[in-house]
Computed example of a mutant assay.
Amino acid sequence: MTYCVALKLDRGLVMMSDTRTNAGLDNISTFRKMHVWEKPGERVLTLMTAGNLATTQAVISILDERMKAPEEREPSIFAAPSMFQVARIVADTLREVIGRQADSGQKADAAFNATVLLGGQIAGGPVRLFLIYPEGNFIEASDDTPFFQIGETKYGRPILVRAFERTMSFEAAVKLLVVSFDSTIKANLSVGMPLDVALYEEGSLSLGTPWRMEANDAYYRTISEGWGDALKQAFDRLPDMELPTSG
């Protein structure tokens, strides 16, 4: 299992992913699930994956290889003229990999399922964010749906729904995601540290350096402990229920 979130703010994109993969409680590994491609001044693309590791690694490898191939031979995310076309290439590649591995070759077999979050900007176009499904179809973030989650989404979603605002700063957005991830990590052992973080400022066409937040990160510990204390205090301030009396 995994957990990845992408927020589409007025200012740009904030993306975070965990790094834990497991095939049982005694076989836990760390793999990067966030992948970045950049042509400074021309395009920035960030992709996060959840699902079957063999499937997602194959998708990333194919996208990398096709960027090195002549444009007329293979579709390349570095040659696509818009983010929509990049999303189509990623979706087609995902469907291709799953179809090749699945017995039927026609639809996404659950054993090989994977989902993808794709965000970025190409010069001349706006920042766009897509959620790509294993069948190869996809949807785009909008004012009504300004963030996407993939993987183990249920534990971290309530804080996002309650606290997310499109106008929030990058600093506040990272804090929000740390709370969301901390809630998920505490509830599900299949999601774990370290966390990869990427910020993209709209119009910059340069990503900067994504960073990794380790389990011993001082800021992460401060937010984790502070959030737990704040929840307890809020709970204690709520009125107790008046139970009905018998007889």
Rank of each mutant, 00 (worst) to 15 (best):
R73L: 15
E242M: 14
G119I: 06
D26Q: 12
A230I: 00
A6L: 03
G136A: 12
S29M: 07
Q233D: 08
M34A: 10
D18H: 00
K154N: 11
Q233Y: 02
T30V: 14
I98Q: 03
T55E: 02
K232S: 14
P70I: 14
T153W: 03
L9D: 05
L118H: 08
A163D: 13
L177H: 07
E152I: 07
R20S: 03
L129Y: 07
L63K: 10
V14R: 03
I122R: 12
M83S: 08
T115I: 01
V44S: 04
I139W: 04
P40W: 08
D182L: 05
S204N: 10
S142L: 13
H35I: 02
S183A: 15
T2I: 11
R32H: 08
G136I: 06
L7H: 05
A6D: 05
P158H: 12
R162T: 11
E165S: 15
T167V: 12
A215E: 14
D103W: 12
M67K: 14
L243G: 09
G192S: 11
G226P: 01
V44W: 08
P210N: 10
V161M: 14
E71Q: 14
R162A: 15
G24Q: 07
A187G: 07
E225M: 11
R100C: 03
K107L: 09
V14G: 01
E135S: 14
I28V: 15
L118V: 05
N216Y: 06
D109C: 08
V5C: 11
F235G: 07
T145K: 15
Q57G: 04
A110I: 13
A79P: 00
R221P: 00
V86Y: 04
L63W: 04
S142F: 06
R88D: 13
E71T: 15
R221G: 01
E140P: 03
A114N: 05
